[in-house]
Simulated scan of single mutants.
Amino acid sequence: MSTSGSGHTTQVTPVVTRLPEPRRASTPPTIGVLTATPWEFAAMRALLDRPHNDEGTRNDPAHYVLGELPSRRSGADHSVVLTQLGRTGTDAAASGCTNLLRSFASVKLVVMVGTAAGIPDLRHPERHVRLGDIVVATQGVVDYDHVRVNGDGVQPRRQFPSPSPRLVRCADRLKADELSGEYPWEEWLGDRMPANLNGYARPRPGTDLLHDHTGRRLKHPQRNRTGHRPGLPKVHYGSIGSANRSLRDAVVRDQVAARHGFLALDMESAGVGSSCFLNDREWFVVRGIADYADSHRNERWRHYASLAAAGYVRALLAECLPVEPQYGHDELASAAN
Rank of each mutant, 00 (worst) to 15 (best):
S2V: 15
G7N: 08
Q11Y: 05
P20M: 10
P20N: 05
P20W: 05
P22V: 04
R23C: 02
R24H: 11
P29E: 08
A36T: 06
T37R: 10
A42F: 01
M44D: 01
P51N: 13
H52Y: 15
N53H: 07
R58P: 03
L66M: 10
G67P: 02
A76L: 09
S79A: 15
V80M: 13
V81E: 07
Q84P: 00
R87A: 07
T88N: 04
A94F: 11
R102D: 01
S103N: 10
A105E: 15
V107S: 08
V113G: 00
G118M: 01
P120F: 01
R123G: 05
E126Y: 02
R130A: 15
G132R: 03
A137E: 01
A137R: 01
V149L: 10
Q159E: 13
P161I: 05
S162E: 14
D172N: 12
L174I: 02
L174V: 02
E178Y: 07
S180V: 08
W185F: 12
L189W: 00
N196K: 12
Y200I: 03
G206M: 09
T207N: 13
T207M: 12
D208K: 06
D212I: 06
D212Y: 06
R217W: 07
H220C: 07
R223E: 15
T226S: 09
H228I: 10
G231V: 12
K234H: 10
Y237H: 12
Y237M: 12
G241Q: 06
S246F: 14
V251E: 14
V252C: 09
D254M: 09
D254E: 15
A257H: 04
A258N: 14
G261D: 09
G261E: 10
F262C: 04
L263P: 02
L263W: 03
A264D: 01
L265T: 00
D266A: 11
D266W: 02
E268H: 07
S269G: 09
A270N: 02
A270T: 01
D280R: 15
R281P: 03
W283K: 04
F284Y: 04
R287G: 07
D291H: 14
A293Q: 02
D294R: 06
S295W: 02
R297V: 01
N298R: 07
N298Y: 09
E299A: 06
R302A: 05
Y304V: 09
S306N: 02
A308M: 04
A309I: 00
G311A: 06
Y312C: 12
E319I: 03
L321A: 15
Q326N: 13
H329D: 11
D330K: 08
D330E: 13
A333T: 13
A335M: 11
